[in-house]
Nucleic acid binder design. Structure first.
Lengths: 272, 272
DNA sequence: ATAAATAATCTCGTTAAATGAGACTATCAG
DNA sequence: CTGATAGTCTCATTTAACGAGATTATTTAT
């Protein structure tokens, strides 16, 4: 549970920074490009690349470039296969075949952000921007806010003090008290509605708990906005809350098969 | 293009070794457990964990454990979104709706292994062991061998000299000449049949090239073995070769939208 | 198959960072 | 508020990262 981010960075940290360079627009880097970007010498750049290559996080690409490596896909598979939330939620979601649901999505809470970990398209005509691996700040979008609203008081206060400007801008309150009131409102409703993330759909998110009072994720049902009536929206809302509750119930009872390792999803702790 | 694996390891390498601890059986580790496993002191173990946490590769889990972090899912998404092979192959695969195909799968070549990067189930009753992120040695299974057979002579020789025992055991030849002959046989057929990986299915794999003579992946079509006749197997074989060829053709013509970064799939270089 | 071009690694003195041991502090539960 | 535990800090010591250029491995063109 890291306390605060130090300004100084370890050598390993500098090596791992290289991963930041790889973006959708710039997925392939030559060592020369990395040297220039980092202001490092040739030897250093090669050493960094070698460390990452040895770990499988980079792979040689065509034209003497490097690209993100196979280990990343392997590790993601590892996560998919060992995530109790996915294991538990999938059958429960499959069980709900309501034709109102255009897509189902689970977002997981990671301290300072919320990350989509599962997306299932039910309506073939729906346009989705969510996909596994897409992340959002804690304040943006209904999947995030469904989590935010259930943070323990201590963390809620922390979050407010380091994000008061953004909170005010999002019209969630101009003071800690107002912010708390907004969050209370979401809790009273039991879910959070929104289409910030994708304005072509109606989305409604409900929190998932892994413990009596610890939120660890949220479930979102979405539906094309142009085919959604008032009553349908209400029905979808009820539905997402109920399904999320069923998942929470199973999670609370869950213990890993062997050993006594405890639960293994991220705990709801705020970073920073 | 790493030469050989040094015995000595960098500090960053030692940090990245921590990722190896996380397995399906053991997905959550306390720092105490890591200390013990690594033989490191408390301070060192915490420093390692902090480096990985800062990079998002680890996340705090319940009961003061750490688990694989959100960054891994984000990076995998990055790869999915920037992989030209996926982009090009998907529409071509969607175009082929032959009822003979029980599942389609693409495996990508990563120097010393072959990794499944895409799996699509067509027959709902088929049992699949393949999934994105699952890797195989270059010698095992038809997806791997379809790649192996097309390695350039230089690499083929290298591979033989460092894997002659395994090659003999797999009955691919007791000498370099015999091995070359086995590979030539696969090339003459244009594909590779097998069910080593999953004995409930008939699988046939054909190579995908990103360049006149550089193999970079393989396409596999599988079908439940109990419903596959001789003629169907033959048809599937023709089909996979033709579809792989169509993908290769598109890949050869492909250039990234902007800039002149060249192709960005892994190049066919053997590690070690 | 061979040779030229390029990519990646090695060597070594110098500088900077990792390590270990134990004290210290933040966080969480009751 | 208090106690228990998780995580961090300090500092002397050891070890590894760094830079510059020479060297070797790999690829490509002939």
């Amino acid at each position: 549970m890291p306390k605060g981010r130090d300004v100084k960075q370890s050598s390993a940290g500098k090596v791992l920074n290289v991963l930041d360079l790889f973006s959708e627009e710039n997925p392939a880097w030559t060592v020369e490009m990395i040297m220039e970007k980092l202001g490092a010498t040739r030897a250093t750049a090669y050493r960094y690349v070698k460390s990452l290559y040895d770990a499988g996080l980079l792979a040689p690409g065509a034209a003497s470039t490097y690209v993100l490596g196979p280990r990343i896909m392997q590790l993601d598979r590892q996560i998919r296969r060992s995530d109790p939330l996915l294991k538990i939620a999938k059958p429960i979601l499959d069980d709900n075949q309501s034709p109102l649901i255009g897509a189902k999505s689970i977002s997981s809470f990671y301290g300072d952000q919320v990350l989509s970990i599962y997306v299932e398209r039910c309506d073939p005509d729906i346009f989705l921007t969510m996909e596994r691996g897409k992340n959002f700040p804690l304040i943006y979008g209904s999947p995030s806010r469904a989590v935010l609203a259930y943070l323990p008081p201590y963390q809620m206060k922390n979050f407010y003090s380091s994000n008061s400007a953004e909170i005010a801008e999002a019209e969630l309150g101009d003071s800690l008290e107002e912010f708390r009131a907004s969050m209370r409102k979401i809790r009273r409703k039991g879910c959070c509605v929104g289409n910030e993330v994708n304005n072509r759909v109606f989305g409604v998110s409900a929190p998932i708990f892994h413990d009596k009072s610890s939120v660890s994720a949220s479930l979102t049902f979405v539906r094309r906005i142009e085919i959604t009536s008032e009553e349908q929206a209400e029905q979808l809302t009820k539905d997402v809350i109920e399904t999320a509750n069923r998942i929470s119930k199973c999670l609370k009872d869950y213990r890993p098969a062997e050993g006594d390792q405890g639960l293994i999803f991220p705990t709801p702790r705020l970073a920073g």
